[in-house]
Amino acid sequence: MRISDIVDSFSSPAMMSGVGDAEVTDEERAMARAVSHELFCDISGHQGFPPTGPSDEPAIPPDMGSYRIFDYAMPATQPPYQVLGDDYSLKLLNALHSEDLAGQCEHSMVVSVSATIPSKGDMLGDKPLSEDERIVVYLPGGAFIGGDTPGSKWMYVRMSMELGLRVFTPRYHVAPAFRYPRPVHDVCTAIAFLVARGFCPQNIVVVGASAGANIGLSALRLLAGSIDVAGCVVVEPCLDLTLSLDSWQRNQEVCVLPYVSPTHPGSISRMYLGPVDGMDAVELLGRPLLSPLFADVGGLPPMQIQVGMDDVLYDECVAFTERIPTAELITYPGINHYTMFRGRTQLDRFYGNLLNFVTRVTSKKGS
């Protein structure tokens, strides 16, 4: 599957259903311009971090907010990984851990702040502004090949405005240049770095969208017992890389995500997994750190799941929620994978539910 196939689908009836021009936000316009710039090349040439945005990318007005990108290093105290019953993942993860200790892995993160938050200390710094400051760690989606893009900064600042909190976004490396489990390792190191800088885990909420939700859930499972965050919100999460549930077929005509068999070397699942050296690719894709739907849910923090009922991922979310009785499932009739973040009405619903959850699971003393 080529990027051009995805670009052609941007104007499809499914993509535009229920959304009028008057609903389009400034954030969406910025994202569309940045994405159209990025998609000139085929993903086979994509080399890690997204490319620099176009020179005419709309700037974030100072009265809306600001952001800064900074480099960080994995804390030297971060222990090697333990992955029970999965020698394949354990070998890959601990190879990355050793490379990182040797200074061979680069990491960076975005810190975003809304102009509506009263200034206190270094608002674009990487230290807590107060002992009990609450923050969000946001993991953008992008089918494992996108991640942080130039236009995404608008959404980070908007999230900061809606929640009244600073937002930290790990710029995890993406496929096909960087494959599993590098993005998971990047998120683990980012959360561990923030805790080492003084942020209390019980004041951190992880929010992940689509592929970012998949990566985030795997990272939280690896950190469970050593770093237990206050909560996790997964939005239209990609939970089953084997694409085995019915909504992948049932919702094909109303959702923009195309079904490409996970056995196909050009599928998103296989690009994220990478070479399998003669092993069964589908069996590997069904392992817990690749498909959280099949993982042990013990040790996961309080969770909210948001998904559209027309999303091809809908059945995965329902099945996952059934395994976590305490999880809150919020569904949106008539919303598919693209329209979850499209238009002011739906964005207001999304942010309202997100704010409600964050307020419930974190201390109200933070600032």
Rank of each mutant, 00 (worst) to 15 (best):
A73M: 07
A73V: 07
A73K: 13
A73D: 12
M74E: 02
M74I: 00
M74P: 00
P75V: 10
P75T: 08
P75E: 08
P75C: 09
A76L: 07
A76P: 00
A76K: 15
A76F: 00
A76Q: 13
A76Y: 00
T77R: 08
T77F: 04
Q78N: 12
Q78H: 14
Q78G: 04
P79D: 13
P80K: 01
P80C: 02
Y81L: 07
Y81M: 09
Y81C: 09
Q82T: 14
Q82R: 15
L84A: 14
L84F: 11
L84S: 14
L84T: 14
L84K: 14
L84W: 14
L84C: 12
G85P: 06
G85I: 06
G85S: 13
D86Q: 06
D86Y: 04
D87C: 11
D87F: 11
D87Y: 08
D87L: 10
D87Q: 13
Y88G: 01
Y88D: 06
Y88Q: 03
S89A: 15
S89K: 01
S89R: 03
L90P: 00
L90E: 10
K91S: 12
K91Y: 04
L92G: 00
L92I: 01
L92S: 03
L93H: 04
L93C: 03
N94T: 02
N94C: 02
N94G: 01
A95L: 06
A95I: 06
A95K: 14
L96Y: 05
L96F: 04
H97T: 01
H97M: 04
H97A: 03
S98N: 12
S98A: 15
S98L: 08
S98P: 01
S98F: 02
E99T: 04
E99V: 00
D100I: 00
D100N: 04
D100M: 00
D100A: 11
L101Y: 03
L101M: 13
L101Q: 10
L101C: 06
L101I: 06
L101R: 10
A102C: 09
A102D: 08
A102G: 14
G103R: 08
G103I: 04
G103P: 00
G103C: 06
G103V: 05
G103N: 05
G103F: 02
Q104T: 01
Q104M: 11
Q104C: 06
Q104D: 08
C105Q: 12
C105D: 05
E106L: 10
E106V: 10
E106P: 02
E106F: 04
H107I: 04
H107K: 11
H107C: 06
H107Y: 13
H107Q: 11
H107G: 02
S108K: 15
S108W: 11
M109F: 07
M109I: 12
V110K: 11
V110P: 01
V110M: 14
V110F: 10
V110H: 12
V111Y: 05
V111I: 15
V111L: 09
S112E: 00
S112D: 02
S112L: 05
S112P: 01
S112W: 00
S112M: 03
V113M: 12
V113A: 14
S114W: 12
S114G: 13
S114C: 08
A115C: 13
A115G: 13
A115T: 10
A115M: 11
T116C: 14
T116D: 15
T116M: 14
I117Y: 02
I117G: 05
I117K: 07
P118H: 08
S119Q: 12
S119W: 06
S119F: 05
K120F: 09
G121S: 05
G121V: 05
D122H: 10
D122A: 12
D122P: 03
